[in-house]
Each structure stands twice: as structure tokens, then as C-alpha cells.
Design a protein around this nucleic acid. Sequence first.
RNA 1: GGCAUCGUGGCCGAGUGGCUAGGCACAGCUCUGCAAAAGCUUGUACAGCGGUUCGAAUCCGCUCGAUGCCUCCA
Length: 492
Amino acid sequence: MALYTEQTLKVHNSLSGSKEVFTPIHEGHVGMYVCGPTVYSNVHLGNCRTFMSFDLIFRYLRHLGYKVRFVRNITDAGHLEDDADEGEDKIAKKARLEKIEPMEVVQRYTVDFHNILQRFNLLSPSIEPTATGHIVEQIEIIKVIQDRGYAYEKNGSVYFDVIRFNQDYEYGKLSGRKLEDMIANTRELTAQDEKRNPQDFALWKKAEPQHIMRWPSPWGEGFPGWHLECTVMSTKYLGDTFDIHGGGMDLKFPHHECEIAQAEASNDQPPVRYWLHANMLTLNGKKMAKSTGNNLLPGEIFSGENNILSKPFSPTVVRFFMMQAHYTSILDLSDDALLAAEKGYNRLMEAMDQLPDLPAGKSSDFDVAAWRQRCYDAMNDDFNSPVLIAQLFEGVKAINLARDEKQSLTPGDRDLLAQTMEAFVHDVLGLEKSLGQTRETEKLEGVMKLVIELRNQARANKDYHTSDQIRDTLSELGIQLKDGKEGTTFTL
RNA sequence: GGCAUCGUGGCCGAGUGGCUAGGCACAGCUCUGCAAAAGCUUGUACAGCGGUUCGAAUCCGCUCGAUGCCUCCA
């Protein structure tokens, strides 16, 4: 029996604005699409949070026993038009150099994207399609939309007719906007604008001479509009209607709204059952923006090469920090918050280390089965990882008490506790011990064993001067000794 | 200006119409040669102003503030 049959998962559906019981279209299978990055610069930390949120969701669905087809695209077309951003020296220069061959830019930043996500321990999606790989499909769907009367051509470009669409369907239902309000709020069209209405958006755009990426089409050389690729790639791999569509909150309008419109205009059915939106990440209470310097790259956090944080933080600590907030809440990143998260993370991981040799007794003072269900309840409630983590710290307490033999667990409960901790910490939250188990660390363990032995000898001889010298010197090096009932251990 | 999300104790962050997550920091206690670690204990906070209610931080309205999107373009 798969776990999902005994756990009731609820998700916050942006479409209804409320939590709904999650029931996939095909029992046991879930189709999920998440809008991926545009690969023209280093992946942004805020993007990482979004992808991490959906990694958590992907992991939990898998943990529940669903077979998940997870599609996340790479946008590698349509965004490389000259931005006339001449003011920025380095970046503008670099961009101009990179624009010599767009696919080089794409390659470089796709690799960067994959590297960073891997360091954050994100699982790979099942399919990672690219926009440029689906130009034919995009052209085909434009034809359908045009045939059904919801698009028009102008000077080699094709635009989606939002007002026409709104007569038969509802434009704005996802973001809670009304078309008439939007029209009332827009300025007059400029004379040279090809659109009939400002709300219309491009399905196909004629390539100006300076535009490098271009493809032949029935309307001449051009490139697809950016909303189109997601409609095409999601429905191609997941079906005309699929279970989950995710993305950052910033994509809700207009991007996702337009996706719905395109899908309905071509298929006459809503493409997505559950829309999930991940919220933004701020830095020191303000939005991240390159222009103000309030910006951090993932690599700069790992290396410590930045002017914002007091020290480097490992990817797994950053991941833990992000998992401590709910994915639908704005999360603020700061030095204090990361420092606190790091300590909490270490405490969690040290408890995990106790798991293999935890003593067991005749009875249990901790109701492991009830606690385990509380962990599931947390995740069932719209993937509430902060509440899950709170529960895991209850587990930490139980582990520490059992280790100190202040509380006892039956062998069965001990094993269930261990198995549940492992499952949630590693499989669901995707937290791993900071990697780096090399020969050097093996040597270090040997050395430390000796040093601890010498110190204990000194202590036995009441030579506290020597024992404290050992302890204090190690402490200055960042190695902390911990005297427990079972002997002395250390942490780095 | 419009739409949306939100405003919680020293910090970060859950949650909910009455029973007050969790982490970090702080304090006390236990343990310890002294510490650290670990454990235990303590914190009645929910932007402001009105309203609904027996009762609201939780529902409604307004004000203020934050963040995102839109009012260029894809």
C-alpha cells in the first residue's frame, strides 16, 4: 500500500485561493510542471528558493508513493534581444561579448544553474525541455489559436487577442484581475503599436535585424513569445490537463495567466488543476536588486566572498534555513537568520549521528507513532516544512534523552524513530551532512581520538592545566569537545 | 494609481475564533574539576484604529508599512 492512500494531502491552490485536498487525475501518478529559469545570467538566489520549494514538493509526493513526472523547462530563446543596457560597464561588456553566440550564453548559464541546484541537493526533474527544442510545436499551437479566432497577425508578428478571448473565457481568473479594470488602468496605445489592445501579448514576434535568435515560420523569420513555450512543453509531456503547475509568485501575472489563456484558446479546457506559487526571498528586508547592491549569488554565500554576511554558509545550511519558512511566505535572508539556522541545523545533524547506536529499553516514554503522524500532518498541510522541522526537533529531544538514558525507547520505537527521522531529514527535506568525507577527515578522526585520550589521561591525573590547554587550543581552532556519558566527542 | 500577498515576543519564523509551534539569543537549574555539549524551566508577542462575537492576534472595515506584479516590453 502506498503511503498516499493513508495520508490526506492538502495544497494551497492559487486558482481558488484556498487549501484543497489533492487528488491526481490518474491515481498514483502526478504530473507537475514548474517554470524554469531563463539562462542568460547566473542563477539568482531567489530563483533557487523557488526551485527548492518545488523540490520539497517533488520529494514529498515521491515519498508518499506517487510516481511523479516532473517537468521543468529551460528558457533559452526570446530573451536575448539587445537591451541597450550600455550604462553597465562590466555586465554590458560581458553581455555584448556573450552575444557573439547565444548558445554559448545558454550553455554557460545552464551549466551554472545545474551546478548550483546540485549543490543545494535538488533532485533532477524527469524532463528538462528547452524552448528552442520546441519551436515547431509552438508554431503549430499558434496556428490553432489563430484558427479558433483568438489571435491576429500584424507585420509578421502574431498577437493573442485578450478581449476576444475574454468574451468566451475568463482572462484574469488566476491573479484575480478583471479585464475591464485593466483596460481602465492602461494608457493609450502609441501610434506605432501593432497590438489592438495593450493587454494583448505576443505569440510570435518578428525578428528585427539585430535579433540573433530567429526561426522561419508561416509569418516570416521570428521567435516565439515567452508565454508560449510553457503552454507547449507542459501539455506535450503532461497532457492537455495536468495536476500541478508551479512557479514563482512573480510569474502569476501575466505569465501564468497567459498560459491559461493560450491553453484554453487552443484546447478549450483548463490546463491545470492545482496552481502552486512560491513566494519571494528578500535580503535584509529588501528586495534583491543588482542595481542597489542588495544582491547575493549562491556561490558568494558558499565562498563567503560578499560584503553582506559575516562568514560562508554551506548549501545545506542555506537549504535548512529556507525549509524553516513556508514556501508561500516571503522569507528574509540575513546574517543573523543564517547564523541561527546553522546552529539549529548542527543540532539536528548531531542528533542524526546518534541514531545508529541509540540504546533501547523495555518501555517507551515517547509516543513515537503519534509523533510520526504529526510529521505527516505537517507535510500534508500544504507542505508545511517549518512545522515539520519543529516536530523533528521533538525527535531530536527524544534522541538526546535516550542517548543520555534519561528516557527510554523500546527497540521497535527506536527503529521507527530512526527511520522516520531519516526519511524526513534526508528524503523529504533533502538535508545532508556537509559533505567532505575524505581521507583527511579520516586522519583527523584518528588524531582527535588520540588527543581526546591524552586529555582524559590528564584529567584523570587532575592535570587540569594540560587538559584545559588541549580543550582551549582546539576550541580556538574551531573544534569543540563535548564530554558526554559515553565519552568525549568533537564537532568542527 | 491598480491587483495580489503579508505585517507575530530580542532575532528568524509557524499557527489559530477560546486550550498560546519550533529554532537562535538571554536567564535559572541539573550535569561537570571548571566549562562546553546535553537535559529541564521561564518568556502571555501577534502594526494601529474601529466593528462582529460570550470571547479575536485569528472574521469584517479603514489607516499605516513591506514585498511582488501591472500602468514600457517580451
